[in-house]
Design a protein around this nucleic acid. Structure first.
Lengths: 212, 212
DNA sequence: AAATAAATTGAACGTTCATTCAATTTATTT
DNA sequence: AAATAAATTGAATGAACGTTCAATTTATTT
């Protein structure tokens, strides 16, 4: 009896507000008071749902890490077509949506916490390993169906995510839209190249380049 | 006349203390008061040399960015031997010293400021471009001397730094020392592979893998 | 020794912070 | 309608923050 609990939805609402605030002003400037003001609630209500600010930040990190897995979201129709699935995942990774969603200071600020917080470090490690593992599985599926013949799927999956993380590290600093677009396309091609998918002529030229 | 100014050395001293503090407690928890306490000076002396905390952070960023260029520091004797120089630079990048110097939360926290601060963004962009450019020049030297035949030095230089940044993004989360060492060696080999330098048998195996 | 200017201190300011606690409101059950 | 429990508020706390300003100390020059 008593009132129905809305704990989970309220927590989510608060985390989302906290995230929006952190995007605008930086994680280091995102406070409980400002978060509460953003959604017109009392600061002590935030404390009621997250006992400390620390646990609010943990909530934010889980929220962010969950979003990363969205890159594997592909139409159900692709489930029996691993090649389509693989290409869609790569599209997701190098899409404009993905950029604007994850090229932000909040991700890097949260990541930086891993250096001083063992729990955060483990969570991030698990995520990066999960991303690689999921990708590896798709490659293996492609191998089975004969649309790909990658000898070491785990190695290539790792290589591609290293490429992705390194690519965005640079891309996030590129202000010129033209340059951004060009670079993004180039990195995407390099990813496809690692799988021996490659469409454009320039990609083939680069393939020769890399193989000297 | 009057007293001799020690502005520059004092500023450097303060920045270094601020950096050490930020390494231990995180940039977001590094305050002027704590910095002053660390070197036994008055907090207002910090303000005297850096008018605002913001400019102290700018100083920190410049301090950090300068350190990155140290990877190009090689024995003067290598100046006429670009191959040795190139290999030494790669050694620097993948060395333990480099790791402990730059695998820290402060670097990522400072980097994250680029998303909200145009000046910081430009400084980082210039640094990353400088790293690539310097590396490219060494490759070109190697080409000239016939010890390398890289067709697109700029492209390869970019690829290698993307690899480096992506590699450390993952490596920074690896707690297991064995795994760290193994992965670091693997990424180093991948860098050498991009240049068609490759020593070990496993590297050659991977070369075949990548070229299918 | 007097003049000078930089180095340094120390007290004080208002602001924001996370967190506490008791009180009140609101929805649901009996 | 009474009981119940969660939702929410509001006031208050002490600590830390960045910054100010005037006063003092210290080293150098004339």
């Amino acid at each position: 009896m008593g009132r129905r609990s809305i704990k989970e939805s309220r927590q989510k609402e608060i985390i989302e507000a906290f995230y929006e605030l952190a995007k605008k002003e930086g994680l280091e400037n995102a406070s409980i008071a400002k978060t509460a003001a953003l959604i017109n609630i009392n600061p002590s209500l935030v404390i009621h749902y997250f006992k400390t600010k620390e646990s609010l930040v943990y909530g934010l990190i889980e929220y962010i890490l969950d979003k990363y897995l969205l890159i594997f979201k592909t139409p159900a129709a692709y489930n029996n077509d691993p090649k389509k699935k693989l290409l869609k995942v790569i599209d997701n990774i190098f899409s404009q949506k993905w950029n604007t969603l994850f090229d932000d200071s909040v991700s890097y600020s949260c990541y930086s916490l891993a250096f001083r917080d063992k729990e955060v470090k483990e969570k991030y490690k698990i995520l990066l390993d999960t991303l690689r593992s999921n990708f590896k599985e798709i490659i293996i599926e492609c191998n089975k169906q004969g649309v790909l013949s990658v000898k070491d799927p785990a190695f290539v999956a790792d290589s591609i995510f290293v490429l992705v993380d390194g690519a965005y590290y640079y891309l996030s600093l590129v202000s010129n839209k033209q340059e951004y677009k060009r670079k993004l396309a180039q990195y995407k091609e390099q990813a496809l190249l690692q799988l021996n998918f490659s469409s454009s002529a320039s990609a083939k030229a680069r393939s020769r380049q890399l193989q000297q």
